[in-house]
């Protein structure tokens, strides 16, 4: 299958890109790594009038620490994030999750910003930035906005980014002492999209869990925080909270969508199993960092 016809533009600057987005809006698609967009073009599920290739814009590249936050540029390739000493040191959740993102050839080309902007419900990075309480920075001719990850993911492939805006970077708080991260997912084959998964970040001391952030993905229309489950866990020693109580909270928090990889009931069951495994691992990691 071959891509349909489109008009191709390759702006060299951020300003030129924002101008094009203002001009074409919903008729345009941003081409970053292309690892999700190109398949939809080849299968003709997407027929944009204009393809805006942002790969040459230097301002969107790089990973750096700035004002106490880790800034990951929208064009940072997955492989760069995976091999980054900054990420390994300050963002162990991202470092643990990255090997689960697709396969080597896709990680060599796919971008961090593209994964966040697409907001695939089974993707790892949206769940990670949600668990970490990161912020997404978008830019447009109407001005630059910083959107909390909590408010960024709205629905199935739907985000708070407007059609005339470009995701330029993600700002992530470095992990603080006393905190632990755990990332787990279940998939049919290593690197495939998750059937169920959790990105977890919490403060754990003496087996007691506080400030837990559990981001569930793979089962819902978007990555979601298990808010009731988090409230039940906070301030308590794990595993004293009974399975029934946690399971009941997850019944409220989650509303899985079935697909070829599992029915809603199967996915809910898998998320419950993963929740226990993730919390066990969190307590264990806090003991032996």
């Amino acid at each position: 299958m071959k891509a349909p016809r489109f008009h191709y533009v390759r702006p060299e600057s951020l300003d030129a890109t924002l101008g094009l987005l203002a001009e074409y809006g919903e008729d345009a698609r941003i081409l970053a790594g292309g690892q999700s967009l190109m398949p939809t073009l080849n299968m003709r599920l997407s027929q944009p009038k204009v393809l805006i290739d942002i790969n040459r814009i230097e301002a969107l590249k790089g990973i750096a620490v700035h004002d106490g936050m880790v800034r990951i540029g929208a064009l940072a390739r997955h492989v760069e994030v995976m091999n980054s000493p900054i990420v390994a040191e300050a963002l162990p959740l991202i470092a643990e999750a990255m090997p689960h993102v697709a396969h080597v050839a896709v990680r060599n080309r796919g971008t961090f910003g593209g994964s966040i902007a697409l907001a695939d419900p089974s993707a790892e990075m949206p769940a990670c930035i949600l668990a970490l309480g990161a912020s997404v920075v978008v830019d447009g001719v109407r001005g630059r906005r910083t959107i909390a990850a909590d408010d960024f993911f709205i629905g199935l492939y739907e985000t708070a980014r407007e059609p005339d805006e470009l995701l330029v970077e993600v700002l992530l708080p470095p992990q603080k002492p006393g905190h632990v991260s755990v990332f787990m997912e279940l998939s049919r084959r290593h690197g495939d999209f998750a059937i169920a998964g959790i990105a977890c970040h919490a403060r754990v001391a003496g087996g007691v869990i506080n400030d837990a952030r559990l981001a569930y993905f793979g089962s819902e229309a978007k990555p979601v925080l298990g808010t009731r489950t988090m409230a039940i866990l906070n301030g308590k020693a794990w595993p004293t909270a009974s399975n029934e109580v946690v399971n009941a909270a997850l019944d409220e928090d989650l509303d899985p969508i079935g697909n070829t990889f599992g029915s809603p009931a199967t996915k809910l069951h898998l998320q419950k199993v993963l929740t226990r495994r993730v919390l066990d691992a969190a307590v264990q990691r806090a003991r032996a960092p």
Partner: peptide, 19 residues
């Protein structure tokens, strides 16, 4: 379709020739 572009293996079908 794997090919090496600038030293890294990529999917040749997920990259445009113009890129």
């Amino acid at each position: 379709c794997s090919v090496r572009v600038d030293g890294a293996v990529v999917r040749g079908c997920l990259m445009l020739a113009v890129q």
